[in-house]
Design a protein around this nucleic acid. Structure first.
Length: 542
RNA sequence: GCGCCUGUAGCUUAAUUGGAUAGAGCAUUGGACUACGAAUCCACAGGUUGGGGGUUCGAAUCCCUCCAGGCGCGCCA
């Protein structure tokens, strides 16, 4: 059962008769008649049914039913839209996980927002959600970063050593060095004459510093994690040895040309992967295995990885690890988000993180603000290769959809404000305070009093109808891992409200139309709940 | 070469996973404020869903093929 594309076909439609006809071996039209007689005609809230060739069943719901469904908006208030489908299930969502060797770029902003919103959605569906950031603080890249930092750090004291050839951009490293210099002075130089430095401390502090920059950036767009998981922690104690022993005992590895290989092809990967190199060092993939084993031990029912398209080669190997250690296939899902392309008008801007060029996430946030960043990054499916048009973002206000939604919310805020300014015959101070304090009494009583209510026009009815859909949207967004369902819904709701507002007078002279006022207040609540999921502010005035 | 993702109006995109006349926004054009906020609303226009085949009652969606773009295919991380 679903909403028809075309509103003329009714409130709801189903193609069940056509889908089932081949299985039951009856003609779709006959089956549709039977479904109508046996089921629909017995439902109290159905107003009318129409059966249309080749077998669609369309029906309308009673106004009273739609209107009364709004009472849930008030009784549930901030939790309207939630459901309990995921109660008792633990899920972990890992996203961003950018190496702590440079600033976040715009793509990371997309994963950050998408991951955060998706986490919110799972929470609204009753799941116990953990948001995790995996920090690659172990291995070659961290070492190279540390060497870069060391080089610039020593330069501060007039000591010259060479800068690593494939090093990170000096501009990025420089910001870390400035902070280290300021906070620690010459603490990392143990003996200047013999040039003895505390390299371990430099590495650790440099990574920590970079990580704190990353945290600040993410915080600025409201992306917070429950857990920052250090790759290096995988190698503490005897974890590594224990893991390798486990793999050997279970026949998941073999030796060849002095290296240790993981039999990932046996589990669907397209090639086997090296875990321990010829020189005895573990590869990045060894960490992946231990990390997934660690996640499994922590007892999650579901794991979601959100990865950029440049990591899509990971799908089969991560799935392979999961299978090899006995996890269900559907317990590990990997969402691949397509990359963000920066566009300035018609010009495509080339991004190069390694060269330190291009716009960082920080720059973007400063440019367009948190709400716009979150809105833009949550309005598309993971699959769209989105273009972020800077010249559009620069314009900042006029054609920005986030304002459209926020404006709807603010407009209703000003209606409520208006109630106080005018003296009304049918609404007193008691009612106003109930409305203002978000007490449901006024609205639920009003709904209760309207036993036989029929909508005066389609704009009233459509608004109520869309409001009643919100819980389904929250559910579907979860089932489809689709944050943009929420964004799209809010845009639709806002449009419905603006239309409603322009075609109906809520307050005239000294009377308020109670039904319409209730509708507007309900819309405000649902807008607020939806914007909360997106992490976008819901202003009272703009 | 192999693999993953994508191609829809001038631009950015949607289509409830195979349903009905492919919906929106921006831009363009015309209209609506001495009534609750005009950051809004209304109207008009814009399409051979990259091309071509196929599957069936029915295809933007599934299959094949070609074209175009993004990304990936290390004892790098």
């Amino acid at each position: 059962m679903e909403e028809p594309k075309n509103k003329e076909f009714g409130d709801l439609t189903t193609n069940a008769a056509m889908v089932l006809s081949s299985q039951i071996k009856k003609k779709p039209m006959e089956l549709a008649e039977e479904i109508n007689k046996e089921i629909l005609s017995k439902w109290k809230f159905v107003e009318s049914v129409a059966i249309i060739a080749p077998g669609f069943i369309n029906f309308n719901l009673k106004d009273k039913f739609i209107f009364e469904s709004l009472s849930k908006v008030f009784s549930e208030d901030g939790s309207y839209g939630e459901n309990k489908s995921g109660t008792g299930k633990k899920i972990q969502i890992e996203y961003v996980s950018s190496n702590p060797t440079g600033n976040l770029h715009i793509g990371h902003g997309r994963w950050g927002v998408m991951g955060d919103v998706l986490s919110n959605i799972y929470e609204k569906n009753g799941y116990d959600v953990q948001r995790e950031y995996y920090v690659n603080d172990y291995g070659t890249q961290a070492k190279i970063f540390a060497e870069c930092v060391k080089s610039l750090y020593l330069k501060k004291f007039g000591i010259k050593i060479s800068y690593p050839q494939d090093g990170y951009p000096e501009a990025t490293v420089g910001t870390v060095v400035e902070k280290l210099y300021k906070d620690y002075g010459d603490k990392f130089i143990l003996n200047r004459d013999e040039l003895i430095t505390d390299d371990a401390a430099i590495e650790k502090n440099a990574i920590d510093m970079m990580l704190s920059f990353i945290k600040d950036t993410l915080s600025s767009i409201g992306v917070e994690f429950d857990n920052w998981f250090l790759e290096s922690s995988l190698y503490e104690n005897n974890n590594f040895e224990t893991a390798i022993k486990f793999l050997r005992e279970n026949g998941l590895v073999y030796e060849q040309e002095n290296a240790l290989w993981f039999k990932s092809t046996s589990y669907g990967d397209d090639k086997d992967r090296v875990i321990i190199r010829g020189d005895g060092n573990p590869t990045y993939f060894a960490s992946d295995i231990m990390y997934l084993m660690n996640k499994k031990e922590r007892g999650f029912d579901y794991l979601i990885y959100i990865l950029g398209a440049d990591h899509h080669g990971y799908i089969s190997r991560l799935k392979a690890i999961g299978k090899s250690i006995g996890m269900n296939d559907d317990a590990v899902s990997i969402i691949i988000g397509q990359l963000v392309r920066l566009v300035e008008g018609k010009e495509v801007l080339k991004m190069s993180r390694r060269k330190g060029k291009g716009m960082t996430l920080d720059d973007l946030v400063k440019y367009v603000g948190k709400d716009a960043v979150r809105y833009f990054f949550s309005m598309n499916s993971f699959d769209t290769h989105m273009d972020f048009d800077l010249s559009l973002a620069k314009k900042k206000s006029n054609q920005n959809p986030v304002f459209y939604v926020q404006y709807a919310h603010a407009r209703i805020g000003s209606i409520i404000k208006k109630l106080k300014e005018i003296e009304l015959d049918n609404i007193g101070e008691k009612e106003i305070s109930e409305i203002e304090n978000s007490s449901a009494d006024f609205c639920t009583n009003s709904i209760g009093n309207m036993k036989k209510y029929e909508f005066k026009n389609n704009s009233e009815r459509n608004l109520a109808w869309v409001l009643s859909l919100f819980p389904d949207i929250v559910y579907d967004a979860c089932k489809n891992n689709a944050p943009y369902f929420i964004t799209q819904y809010l845009y639709r709701l806002s449009g419905e409200f603006h239309y409603f507002y322009n075609h109906n007078i809520i307050i005239s002279k000294n009377r308020a139309n109670i039904i319409r006022l209730v509708l507007a207040i309900a819309a405000k609540k649902v807008l607020k709940n939806g914007l909360d999921i997106l992490g976008i502010s819901a202003p009272e005035k703009m």
